[in-house]
């Protein structure tokens, strides 16, 4: 059974390459050379460059990009006082994030001293709401959380992803790396089977990217809306018939850190637009 699946897939990978017309394939993509000698790839390319013009054109125009509707919502929340401390997130956030606002989007997930572990941007926001603002945490995939994370990541748009994986972050990094290469689910596949071994090829009608997360939160046509990195992880896991983990699970934060590191050097594109 598994053999049959793999054969079908392999066939599609060859057949599909015929109608590839993307910046990655025509040589106009921005290709980053990894600086870390332990990087598994010789080139780092944004998911943007694996998409056709119909998708890229929308991301290129902030007005046409429907993710901006969610960013607008986040900007409103950002300046709104909420909770018992009488503060808005704009007043409390930098203290919680431990780095300047325009840097946050390029360095998270990150080891946070107050949390005592590597946490994602969503977790910084909720920690800040609970401890500094005296407000209720947002649900992970709520419009409020997506709006705020998209708004914050956008403040780093254009700067280069630069997550730290040494020192206190190294345990989470190693965990993330292990998960990335671990075969899971009924199809018995790892992240690497698609996003390391086969990026630039088609899997059925989908062009595989390197799975970089520099554009998240991202508006996806499949979702008709904006979603988080963890939502994307969950989708991938469902595709390979594995049981997805809950949003914010420690393993997903570790995987997010590792995946972000694989894209170190790419421009932050949030909020991106994808198929």
């Amino acid at each position: 059974m598994r053999l049959a699946v793999m054969i079908t897939m392999a066939f599609s990978l060859v057949a599909g390459a015929a109608f590839a017309k993307t910046p990655y394939h025509d040589g106009t993509a921005e290709v980053i050379k990894p600086t870390d000698k332990n990087h598994p790839l010789g080139e780092i390319v944004s998911g943007y460059d694996f998409r056709k013009a119909m998708i890229r054109d929308v991301q290129d125009d902030d007005f046409e990009n429907p993710a901006m509707l969610v960013v607008d919502h986040g900007e409103e929340l950002w300046g709104t006082v909420d909770g018992s401390a009488g503060k808005s997130l704009s007043q409390a956030f930098e203290g919680c994030a431990e780095v300047p606002l325009d840097v946050v989007g390029s360095v998270y997930p990150r080891f946070n001293n107050a949390a005592g572990k590597v946490i994602s941007l969503e977790q910084v926001i909720n920690m800040c709401r609970e401890t500094a603002m005296g407000a209720k945490p947002y649900k992970w995939e709520s419009r409020d959380m997506l709006g705020i994370t998209a708004y914050i990541r956008m403040q780093s748009r254009g700067s280069r992803v630069n997550v730290a994986v040494d020192g206190k972050a190294s345990a989470a990094f190693e965990r993330g790396k292990k998960l990335y290469y671990q075969r899971v689910g009924q199809l018995d596949m790892s992240c690497a089977h698609c996003h390391e071994d086969n990026y630039g090829n088609y899997i059925r009608a989908d062009m595989l990217s390197q799975g970089n997360i520099n554009g998240f939160p991202t508006y996806r046509l499949k979702w008709n809306g904006v979603g988080s990195t963890h939502r994307r992880f969950r989708g991938c896991m469902k595709n390979i018939r594995a049981k997805p983990l809950p949003y914010g699970h420690e393993d997903y934060v570790a995987l997010e850190l590792y995946t972000a590191w694989r894209g170190n050097g790419l421009k932050v594109e949030a909020p991106a637009y994808r198929n």
Binding site: I203, R204, K238, N239
Partner: peptide, 8 residues
């Protein structure tokens, strides 16, 4: 219209 079997 290409509709993939993947794409999460």
């Amino acid at each position: 219209v290409t509709i993939g079997g993947c794409g999460g």
